[in-house]
Design a binder for these strands. Structure first.
Length: 875
DNA sequence: CACTCCCGCCAATTA
DNA sequence: TAATTGGCGGGAGTG
């Protein structure tokens, strides 16, 4: 709607009716004049120019409120602009038109006329999208406000959003510098990257958080030396949240805007529903509560969305869910900016690149992660901008608050992830209560369907590795450094340990999956059958392979896998149906899938939306039967997974099958399935990598699964946390990257008590693999253990079907805790982990997660905590 | 009634 | 202390 309006409005066109013509007009004119000179004007606003009289007249006609303000401003404006032909015209128009009706309208500028979106259009109309680099346009808030006839407050809303995208930067008080869209793609790229890291995690799944913790700690060390330490802290930042710091900045519209954009960028579908976004963005997780908070967040999101819509970056769409339609926004801006491309490319190219990539990723990551880093990041952002200099304080204070804010934003991102979890959980709950959300694909809208991302298209498995790596790095952390070796396996190369993917299983009962989807998806699903909750999160694991691929290029590739369809199968959530509360995203099967390949059969699941985050859902899933289900994960290789349960808790009778994909592409994805009743004793791990298809379960039966997986007796697991290294070394594996990460994770895991175990699987990817390949070797230090026969068997069983599956042999290694220690105190929090897990799972197990949540989640105020929690295991 | 989201109070920050 | 920023949420317009 807005758009339409805009159209008319925007252009300097004559506004037909608008009451506010003046403003518009002004706006229009200004374009050319980039800067308005006028500060003076602003101030002057008040005054009564004569001209005003006319204006007043008009205004008065219009709305009362408007009149005052507008009068002033406009008056000025016109005057200044004076000539703008428009003005007069418009006035005339108005008048003329008005005659009656028109007039009427004018007067009453409906809300739409006063909408932020429209206002933003006017604002944008004043400045060129691509200003000459040379010329810098400065924007005076007062001036603009007066010109546009609005209160300054409204201008702040616009500017803050624009600033978040670096279309403008603040130079000084009341002064902003207009950069235009030159750097928009870069900014988006950065946001995407940041989003992947953060949200990806989320999306991926929570566990990411955990990982993150790990990561952080480890990562820092290892990975980036440079990075230094900051590991925890940064995250902590979020912590910061803890309190103090948070002040306003955290909540800033700017940050929200960036996060919001990030969600789109990491979303496969490119569609984000407001409620989901709100949930994710609400730091506090309190899900439960604060309905008001949620409302407030939504209000803000509307504000942001209006501006973004004006920028033609998003458009409003509706997503149909089970419940009904939900308002959502679809990203219509550039999808992947080049930058990404690069990355992709690199990745795809080969593993080799990986390292670099990872590094980069790490670097980025770090940046994001750390406050300091953040700063750096910001700086970079800023730098990009034309005006950088201008940025606030550049000169003097580096730390200007704002920057900090941005920095914070990074942290926030992290938090977000946490939040997302929570949200999810909440949702789950809620949903459980109410209803789950699943998005259904809407037939009508294709929008949501997943689009294949552009990215997605990418090919390639191999590439995966690289990709992964980064993420891995990120997530995991460590990789490089420590493990150098990790080296990733490059494609084929076995990298030994490092390469292998690992999974960690925290004690927590649930499962974690790591997916490597690139994008992160996560879905969860859950089965639950009984339990309530259920849902797992796997994010997309299911994701359609295609999706997976997408980004991933990396990995995914998968072509074939058999199934694809299944989609969500994995997710299946058996239960889901049952309760699942929320699934956020639903696969859309129907939709078309995007491209790629999915097989026909399944559609893709789409997860879309943030899918990840939310996703959960259960879509399809018929399978419930299978409870245990498996989930397919993505891509190939990597397998591994972890799972885990706690020793303590084992009980999973339920099965949860959550899966999560790793957020980052890199990560391996695993599915952990808790044993269904019957199986209770076993845990299954699947590698996400595999093509989704692979995993898919047949409908009901387990046996059918083809995925490579490992079953582990729960008892066994109980004892310790397991970690799997994703990487395989096997040639096949792409994933190599993980390794490091893996390690990191562990630490986090907080498994604490238990000893961590690593399991390496062989890559599965192709059928070829038969036995475990090289993997073992990887673990140098530790002897590798192969899974017990049991596992093997299981695997066998499972695998059977899938062609793909190769079975991955899995090796267990004992590690000392690789990471465990490392984590910094804060980072680790055990509780969170659980919570974390729960979250997704929570759905599944109400109880469990409740506990967790209740305890932790809520307690923790926010994401941060979670992060922390996750990090710290200790407790 | 639900969805949007304008409006502007007023607190946090800055200057 | 005054001015600038900007969080926040009441409540109104729309459909």
């Amino acid at each position: 709607e807005n758009i339409f309006d805009r159209s008319r409005m925007a252009p300097k066109t004559p506004i037909k009716n608008e009451p506010i013509d003046l403003s518009k007009q002004k706006g229009c004119t200004p374009e050319r004049n980039p800067i308005t000179p006028v500060k003076v004007m602003d101030k002057p606003q008040a005054d009564p120019w004569t001209p005003t009289a006319n204006l007043k007249m008009l205004v008065s006609a219009a709305s009362p409120d408007m009149r005052d303000r507008e009068k002033k401003k406009e008056l000025f404006r016109p005057i200044e602009n004076s000539e703008q032909s428009d003005t007069p015209d418009s006035l005339q128009y108005d008048i003329v038109d008005d005659s009656t009706v028109e007039e009427f309208e004018k007067r009453r500028p409906s809300r739409k006329q006063k909408s932020l979106g429209l206002l933003c259009q006017k604002f944008l109309a004043r400045y060129p999208n691509y200003p000459l680099s040379t010329e810098k346009t400065t924007i005076s808030l007062d001036e603009v406000a007066s010109i546009l006839g609005v209160e300054r407050r409204r201008i702040y809303d616009i500017v803050n959003v624009l600033e978040s995208l670096h279309l403008v930067s603040r130079v000084a008080k009341n002064q902003y510098c207009w950069h235009g869209r030159h750097n928009l793609s870069q900014t988006l790229k950065k946001l995407q990257e940041a989003g992947e890291l953060q949200y990806g995690e989320l999306m991926t799944f929570q566990h990411k958080e955990q990982d993150s913790d790990y990561k952080f700690g480890e990562r820092k060390r290892e990975t980036v030396p440079e990075s230094q330490d900051r590991p925890l802290q940064d995250f902590s930042e979020p912590d910061c949240s803890s309190a103090s710091a948070n002040s306003r900045k955290d909540k800033s519209l700017r940050i929200m805007s960036q996060k919001f954009v990030m969600l789109f960028l990491v979303s496969k579908t490119k569609i984000v529903t407001l409620d989901i976004a709100a949930k994710i963005l609400i730091e506090e997780t309190q899900d439960t509560v604060d309905h008001s908070k949620f409302k407030t967040k939504v209000r803000r999101l509307y504000d942001i969305a209006n501006v973004l819509t004006s920028l033609d970056l998003i458009k409003k769409v509706h997503v149909t869910e089970e419940r009904g339609r939900k308002p959502a926004f679809k990203w219509i801006g550039p999808v992947e900016f080049s930058g990404k491309t690069d990355e992709l490319t690199g990745h795809s190219q080969t593993s080799d690149p990986l390292p670099e990539t990872q590094r980069e990723a790490c670097a980025r990551y770090q940046i994001c992660a750390t406050g300091k880093q953040r700063l750096a990041r910001h700086a970079s952002f800023n730098g990009a901008q034309p005006c950088e200099g201008t940025r606030r304080k550049v000169s003097s204070e580096p730390n200007s608050p704002r920057q900090e804010r941005q920095d914070e934003y990074c942290s926030k991102m992290v938090n977000l992830a946490a939040v997302c979890r929570q949200k999810i959980e909440e949702d789950t709950r809620n949903s459980s209560v109410t209803s789950p959300f699943s998005l259904l694909p809407v037939p009508g809208d294709s929008d949501f369907c997943v689009n294949p991302l552009p990215q997605a298209a990418f090919p390639v498995v191999q590439a995966e590795v690289p990709s992964f790596s980064l993420p891995a790095g990120i997530n995991s952390q460590v990789p490089h450094p420590s493990t150098p070796a990790a080296s990733k396996t490059e494609d084929g190369k076995p990298a030994l340990v490092p390469s292998q993917p690992f999974l960690c299983f925290p004690s927590s009962s649930l499962f974690m999956l790591c997916g490597g989807l690139q994008e992160n998806n996560l879905s969860e699903t859950q089965p639950t059958a009984g339990d309530k909750g259920n849902w797992s999160a796997e994010a997309q694991a299911a994701e359609p392979p295609a999706l997976c691929q997408k980004r991933s290029s990396h990995k995914c590739t998968l072509p074939s896998p058999p199934v694809d369809d299944e989609e969500p199968v994995a997710k299946k959530q058996n239960m889901e149906q049952t309760d699942l509360p929320l699934s956020l995203v639903v696969p859309k099967k129907p939709f078309e899938s995007p491209k790629t390949e999915y097989t026909p059969g399944s559609g893709c699941p789409s997860a879309v939306h943030l899918e990840t985050y939310l996703d959960l859902e259960s879509p399809t899933a018929p399978e419930a039967g299978s409870k245990e289900s498996a989930k397919p994960l993505d891509c190939q290789e990597q397998e591994k997974q972890p799972q885990n349960k706690d020793p303590d808790e084992p009980p999973p009778e339920n099965e949860h099958i959550p899966k999560e994909n790793a957020s980052q592409p890199f990560q391996p994805q695993y599915l952990y399935v808790q044993p269904p009743a019957g199986l209770s004793s076993f845990n299954f791990l699947f590698s996400a990598n595999q093509a989704p298809g692979a995993i898919s379960l047949p409908s009901n039966q387990l046996p059918s699964l083809s995925v490579p997986c490992v079953m582990v007796p729960s008892s066994a697991l109980a004892s310790f946390p397991l970690v799997c290294s994703p990487s395989f070394t096997s040639p096949l594996s792409h994933d190599g990257s993980f390794p490091a990460a893996a390690s990191m994770n562990f630490s986090m895991s907080s498994l604490a008590s238990t000893t961590p175990v690593f399991i390496s699987t062989t890559a599965v990817v192709t059928p070829k693999v038969s036995p475990t390949p090289s993997v073992d070797p990887s673990q140098p230090a530790h002897p590798a253990l192969h899974l017990s026969p049991v596992l093997t068997r299981s695997c066998g069983a499972v695998k059977l079907d899938s062609p793909v599956c190769v079975g991955h042999p899995v090796t267990l290694l004992k590690l000392q805790q690789p990471s465990s220690a490392p984590l910094t105190p804060k980072n680790i929090r055990p509780a969170h982990h659980e919570a974390f897990f729960k979250t997704p799972g929570s759905l599944g197990d109400p109880v469990t997660w409740k506990k967790n949540e209740g305890n932790q989640t809520r307690n923790a105020s926010s994401v941060q905590r979670r992060l922390e929690i996750s990090g710290s295991s200790a407790d």
